[in-house]
Design a protein around this nucleic acid. Structure first.
Lengths: 109, 109
DNA sequence: ATTTATTATCGTAATATTACAATAACAAAC
DNA sequence: GTTTGTTATTGTAATATTACGATAATAAAT
């Protein structure tokens, strides 16, 4: 008891839920936003300064976002530069948008 | 410690996170989908049978979805009929889609 | 090799979420 | 008013999430 029952749902639904979960926390939204707007390549410390959460917390959130492949990483010197994987971003935008659109279409028949 | 720090983020971001959280659980996605596809008005028991979770669990999920106004309710006899509030559905579709689009635009400059 | 800078991981406390049994609340039917 | 059908609420156990201090791991710089 207590944990989400994944086995009772089709894979599509579980996948959508997983993607939505990543953007269901304000810190992760703020991280994605910051990385996308940053003029210069930004690393973990930049994000820590920007968001105002401890470094391990940011690292944890980054790891959640990485799990769905939304980031590209490139190492320069000591630091890791994060950037958005546009293909994945687009894939997930469509995945979520399609859910809403399909829901609406279903309502209208 | 332990609870999400909302005060460090702007309201927009917290709002988006709140909406995304509703669709971050497969049972809630399945509920929304079922209600939208149902030909006849559907009540809580119908959803319980469809999804395969206990009635209090479904009731709890329905309440989460209601909190962001995604449902209309209408009482007929003993039961409550749930339907999707299309305006809200559209509002949230745009809210989430705009986040993705803006993120992508930011990446390309 | 030691220092310095950066990020990940470990451990853990606080809190939130998920699920369900039991039961209350409500409304129609008898 | 008692029964029946439906949904909400209460209470609670199991699990997950969030946050951070401490520390390890990694890599460049000296």
């Amino acid at each position: 008891m207590g944990s989400t029952k994944l086995n009772i749902h089709v894979a599509d639904i579980n996948h959508l839920a997983k993607v939505a979960k990543v953007i269901s926390h304000p810190a992760r939204i703020a991280i994605i936003k910051y990385i996308s707007t940053s003029e210069t390549p930004c690393n973990c410390n930049d994000i820590v300064k920007e968001i105002g959460l401890a470094q391990p917390t940011i690292s944890q959130h980054l790891s959640e976002i990485k799990k769905i492949g939304l980031f590209d990483q490139s190492a320069t010197g000591k630091s890791l530069n994060y950037s958005i994987n546009i293909d994945k971003l687009n894939e997930y935008r469509r995945l979520i948008n399609d859910f809403f659109v399909k829901t609406q279409v279903n309502c209208n028949k």
